[in-house]
Design a binder for these strands. Structure first.
Lengths: 183, 183
DNA sequence: TTAGGTTGTCAACAAGTGTTGACATATCTC
DNA sequence: GAGATATGTCAACACTTGTTGACAACCTAA
């Protein structure tokens, strides 16, 4: 039993690592199995198939930001902490990376977009209050992640943590202070 | 000869449409051929293979922004025009969408990232001057595109053109006015 | 030990991939 | 017209994909 849990967790770990970073369709079960040093057939046994494994990697993700933040200021603190500390250099890709890699996939795109809306946009909207500002706020988080992680600019060295945090806060502030047409 | 040009252009059109929107690996040559109403084998004949077709779709893209803009203000005007008018609702996906869909692909990711840097980031840097502000500027363009096109939020209606333009300018202004550590 | 359930291994499957070459048909040049 | 070239059609190739079932190895309980 303990051994089975072990291989299950290994598959979950490498499945999340690969499927989140590179996307659902491009990554094959054999690649995941090889990375986990486990037979391919065991994926279908434990998770019922490729989709089952992907769903399992999504199960405990998307911690609700609204559970921890009550004001835009607290939200900025939380996001800063989330973006600056956790995902930088970590082996497990961030949720943002998962969204960017899978939001357009033929098989899982709709599911991912719905999940993003339900567990990410909706809680943010509850705190921020205005749809336009919420969308801008999300675009800041996603955009900065794209530039830093998705598009690795050769001659743009990774900024220091302090610099990165300053840039992030500057842009979040701008998003939250948007006061034009809020449709 | 005219007929060959016709099928070549049909393949190029649908190839760009599908490969840019959904990414290189997930889209098969048979899907493209079917969309273009052309035999699969002709892709390899005319373009030498899948990679050749992809390269062909990239050939005339990435018009150099620096050729038209000389100051950050002109750049903002240009980008506003580019983002607000051209790609909204168009059948051919935008270059931004192409970047987001392909920057991580195993086969074409490096090529796309290099191209992005060479034809997109470098010209922007030449105008803006500061790497940090340039990166933030890019993150605005990419981030807003992600939220609007990559992630289609069900209850976030597409903003009017005027609203969209106002939001875009607001965020670009914020990126260009960043005055923190510029490393 | 025996019986039973869990866990892992292996081979095969149907379907889909990019690519190639043989062949047929059309189009143009002389 | 005849010959040559361009263009399209079709079948097959080697390979990879996700999935399944048969079988062996292991551990636990009676």
């Amino acid at each position: 039993m303990t051994k089975a849990l072990n291989t299950r967790e290994k598959l979950l770990f490498h499945g999340r690592r690969l499927l989140w970073a590179r996307g659902y369709s491009p990554v094959s079960l054999r690649q995941i199995a090889k990375a986990a040093d486990v037979d391919v057939a065991l994926i279908s046994r434990y998770f019922g198939g490729k989709m089952g494994l992907f769903d399992a990697t999504l199960a405990d993700a998307f911690d609700d930001p609204s559970a921890l933040a009550k004001s835009p200021e607290q939200l900025m603190d939380l996001m800063t902490q989330l973006f600056v500390t956790a995902p930088r250099g970590g082996e497990t890709p961030s949720v943002v990376r998962m969204i960017l890699s899978n939001a357009h996939d033929d098989d899982v795109g709709e599911k991912v977009r719905n999940l993003t809306h339900e567990k990410f946009y909706a809680p943010l909207l509850a705190i921020i209050g205005c749809p336009a500002r919420t969308a801008l706020f999300m675009s800041v988080l996603l955009g900065i992640s794209v530039v830093e992680k998705t598009i690795k600019l050769p001659d743009y060295p990774a900024p220091s943590t302090a610099t990165y945090e300053a840039q992030l806060r500057h842009m979040m502030q701008a998003a939250l202070s948007y006061s034009g047409e809020t449709q």
